[in-house]
Amino acid sequence: MPVSEGKMQCSSCHSPHGATNVKQLRVGNWINESCVSCHAEKRGPFLFDHAAGRESCVSCHDPHGSSNDRMLVARTPMLCQRCHIGTRHPSTIYDNNAVNARSNRIVGRSCVNCHQQIHGSNHPSGQSLTR
């Protein structure tokens, strides 16, 4: 968030005098409604939703800042592997050998190198959020 640049302050999202939303958020009626007021491209509702994200944006993102890209609470692929441990590539260890081989599962944006539609997809074949 552009806080240190002076473009946002605590009061950009929170009302210190009280609000009808949780956490004294000044916009909307749930955490997600506050987030999508500025990030409307993620609002949907989509044909295929990412359920964890639809429940709450803060399952994956820390709105107060993070050392990880996109303010994620943990970096990919480890964040994704907290909920996805199916067979084959979701549950594979991506170690330093994979980094040295520049595997697209761990370098760059890792899982999102393929699962780009991580917030939801309108593609008829988008159930894996790859389209």
């Binding site: 044909l47 939703d49 639809r54 429940e55 008829p124 074949s125 159930q127 790859t130």
Partner: peptide, 27 residues
Amino acid sequence: TPHFPVGQYVRLDGNVSTSVTGGSEPF
């Protein structure tokens, strides 16, 4: 949002596969 039934779908524009969930899951 009405359920969007999908029996077969296309993986990454490469080949046809069968949907495990049968389509969308309107959460």
